[in-house]
Amino acid sequence: MDSSIVINNLIKSYGSLRALDNLNLRVENGGFYGLVGPDGAGKTSLMRIITSLLLPDDGYIRVAGLDPVKDYKKLRLKLGYMPGRFSLYQDLTVEENLKFFASVFGTTIKENYNLIAPVYSQIEPFKNRRAGKLSGGMKQKLALSCALVHKPEILILDEPTTGVDAVSRREFWDMLKDIRSKGITILVSTPYMEEAVLCDTISLMFDGKIIDSGTPNEITSHFKEPIFVVKTDFVRSLLKIIREMPCLKSVNSFGQTLHVVLNSDDCGAKDVSEFIKSKCSFDFQIEPYSAGIEDCFINHIISRKK
């Protein structure tokens, strides 16, 4: 059984806007792959091309060994797809929704109950409630159950956790891991960097291109510049001051901390510290830091702009 996704030099434009620009991607059999990027990066377009809902302008694409342009009928049987918006029938109950999608795919809830049980059992007590009356987290679980009920080989999830509370999000990712362990290939997109590290392999997407790929560790190890974290109660004031520093590459605030990236190894924490002290008398602490996915992402974008 081939449930890999192979994409080479994929191009998709909407008028003069290039949504996907010579994109390459490879999701292995049984992989758990994350697409990370801000809104407008092209994640949804890519997923719609993979699910045969959109036609690419150019490029090579094989999903489970099938061409989504020509063999879309066969391919659609193998896919489980959860679109970005909550797209189930709000006026039908939880059970009616699930039953409907099961019948449409020629199966029953019973037949694949084992597969959906980890997800569905959590919302089963509310099975007679209308889908429109569920909370955001429960809606996502129902949508996932519906996408899974026909036992797809590949599960494609477009920003499944957007607009869902933190607890539900964590539960949701645990469920994905569970599904993955049953041999289903998963491709998931998310704008949340901290979620991305839960995937085996991730790609950072920006402006229709993949700017970096690898395991989360590989991606963070690609971060070469010195990076420090500055902790202070005066984030806004220090941000302004640090921006004036000579050998600075970038500075970004993360809550009550600042991540400071320097241009070369010639500068260090000491230079930053001295520069701040020369400008003001605010209290702060500076420590070495190991870059996260978000730092990598910002760094890539800044490098590209320069």
């Binding site: 719609r48 699910t51 045969s52 809902l53 009928k73 659609r76 049987l77 896919l79 797809y81 679109p83 970005g84 918006r85 909550f86 797209s87 189930l88 029938y89 709000q90 999608f101 449409v104 795919f105 020629g106 519906c146 996408a147």
Partner: peptide
């Protein structure tokens, strides 16, 4: 509401 997307991806 976006359900057409799912219907289209269905058999």
């Amino acid at each position: 509401i976006g359900t057409m997307e799912i219907l289209l991806v269905s058999p």
